[in-house]
Amino acid sequence: MANFTIADIKALREQLGTGMVDTKKALEEADGDVEKAVEILRLKGAKGNAKRADRSTSEGLVAARENDGSVTLLELACETDFVAKNERFIALADKVVDAAAAAGADSVEAALAADADGKTVEQLISDEAAIIGEKVELRRVRTISGDKFEVYLHKTSKDLPPQVGVVLAYSGDDAETARSIAQHISFANPSYLTRDAVPEADVEKEREIVTEISRNEGKPEAALPKIVEGRVNAFFKQVSLLDQDYAKDNKLSVAKVASDAGLTLTDFARFKVGA
Rank of each mutant, 00 (worst) to 15 (best):
S126Q: 12
D127S: 13
E128I: 02
E128K: 11
A129Q: 02
A129L: 05
A129V: 08
A129T: 11
A129W: 11
A130M: 10
A130S: 15
I131R: 10
I131Q: 10
I132Q: 05
I132W: 08
I132S: 07
E134W: 13
E134V: 05
V136C: 02
E137N: 11
E137V: 15
E137K: 11
R139Q: 14
R140C: 07
T143D: 11
T143E: 02
T143I: 05
T143F: 08
I144M: 09
G146L: 07
D147T: 15
K148P: 02
F149C: 01
F149W: 13
E150D: 15
E150R: 14
E150I: 11
V151T: 15
Y152R: 05
L153R: 01
H154R: 14
H154D: 06
T156K: 15
S157L: 10
K158P: 01
D159I: 00
L160N: 12
L160Q: 13
P161A: 13
P161E: 03
P162A: 11
P162G: 07
Q163A: 13
Q163G: 15
Q163L: 11
Q163C: 03
Q163D: 06
V164G: 00
V164A: 05
V166E: 04
V166P: 04
V166M: 08
V167M: 04
V167Y: 05
L168A: 01
L168E: 04
L168M: 06
Y170I: 02
Y170H: 04
Y170A: 04
S171T: 10
S171Q: 14
S171L: 06
G172S: 03
G172V: 01
D173Q: 11
D173H: 01
D174L: 06
A175E: 15
A175D: 15
E176M: 02
T177Y: 09
S180M: 08
I181F: 09
I181D: 07
A182Y: 10
Q183N: 09
H184M: 03
H184S: 01
I185L: 06
I185C: 03
F187Y: 07
F187T: 12
A188T: 07
P190T: 11
S191Q: 14
S191I: 04
S191G: 12
S191P: 00
Y192N: 02
Y192P: 06
L193I: 04
L193N: 00
L193A: 01
T194H: 09
R195W: 02
D196W: 02
A197P: 00
A197T: 00
A197M: 12
A197V: 00
P199G: 03
P199S: 06
A201I: 07
A201T: 13
V203Y: 07
V203W: 10
E204Q: 15
K205A: 14
K205Y: 03
K205W: 03
E206K: 11
R207S: 03
E208T: 10
E208Y: 06
T211H: 06
S214F: 08
E217H: 07
E217P: 00
G218N: 01
G218R: 02
G218M: 06
G218D: 09
G218I: 05
K219F: 12
K219Q: 08
K219D: 11
E221V: 06
E221K: 07
A222T: 13
A223Y: 10
A223F: 13
L224F: 12
L224C: 07
I227A: 12
E229T: 08
G230K: 12
